[in-house]
């Protein structure tokens, strides 16, 4: 941590990221367990974006974009693996219908991968077309 004890007068008392990380995790969880693609994609973006934000704020990385692309690639890999495992099919299911078909697992995989793609685009845009230092990926 940057904040050393005994240095309270230099200590930052607020950060926007913790709340966003928590909400991102919650939304992503619901979106993935219930295959609700928009929630999964949005929640994952919120989660990864905020983790990158807080890590940069704490000073563990200098620029947010390489870390964000790392998360993005991991999401793409996980998502595609899940999609491949399900046999390459996907279907939009109702919550009250079965959640267990391979189609719904494929949908989960695709949404994770899609979140990764958007995050990757965000990272590239952030790196080459903005001057923001703590920007969010969206």
């Amino acid at each position: 941590m940057e904040e050393q004890p005994g240095l309270s007068d230099q200590y930052r008392m607020s950060s926007p990221w913790p709340m966003l990380i928590a909400f991102g995790l919650a939304i992503a969880e619901v979106g993935i367990i219930w295959p609700l693609a928009p929630l999964a994609v949005g929640g994952l973006l919120l989660l990864t974006g905020s983790i990158v934000g807080i890590v940069r704020e704490a000073g563990y990385v200098e620029s947010p974009w390489p870390l964000l692309s790392g998360f993005a690639l991991a999401l793409v890999a996980i998502g595609l693996a899940l999609f491949a495992y399900s046999g390459g099919a996907f279907a939009v299911n109702s919550v009250s219908e079965s959640l267990r078909t391979s189609g719904s697992i494929g949908l989960r995989g695709l949404s994770i991968a899609f979140a990764g793609v958007i995050a990757l685009v965000g990272a590239l845009v952030g790196k080459y077309w903005t001057t923001a230092n703590a920007g969010h990926s969206v």
Partner: peptide, 17 residues
């Protein structure tokens, strides 16, 4: 007699969950 928790941001994440 500490200035804050050891990990203040993690503290905030824990609450907001």
């Amino acid at each position: 007699d500490a200035d804050d928790m050891a990990f203040p941001r993690i503290n905030a994440i824990a609450f907001w969950l």
